[in-house]
């Protein structure tokens, strides 16, 4: 198989580069390989789009859960503060 054909068929490598590119600058060669692949592969174009949406969703999910109402119960907190006071007393 020619080098170019390998690049065109290899979705495993293309998706690897798609992930890498979202976190780091690709090398010149990697960048070219990815562009060639994406020019001819609709499936990986879709993967690229979905992968970015997933990142945004994950971040939103964590962001939202930090605002959630879930709280520690008061009894646990009182006990915990008591332990801290005890520790302070020992110093």
């Amino acid at each position: 198989m020619s080098y170019l054909k390998k690049v065109i068929y290899n979705c495993k490598q293309a998706t690897f580069l798609i992930e890498k590119k979202q976190l780091k600058r690709l090398s010149f060669r990697e960048e070219i390989e990815l562009r060639i692949h994406l020019a001819g592969c609709g499936m990986c174009v879709l993967y690229n789009k979905q992968s970015r949406v997933i990142n945004a969703m994950v971040q939103q999910l964590f962001h939202d859960s930090m605002k959630s109402e879930l709280k520690l119960d008061e009894a646990f907190k009182a006990e915990l503060q008591a332990k801290i006071e005890e520790g302070l007393g020992n110093n």
Binding site: K77, L80, Q81, E85
Partner: peptide
């Protein structure tokens, strides 16, 4: 530390 639990727990 007296305020830790109330503020950050």
């Amino acid at each position: 530390p007296h305020k830790w639990v109330a503020t950050y727990a």
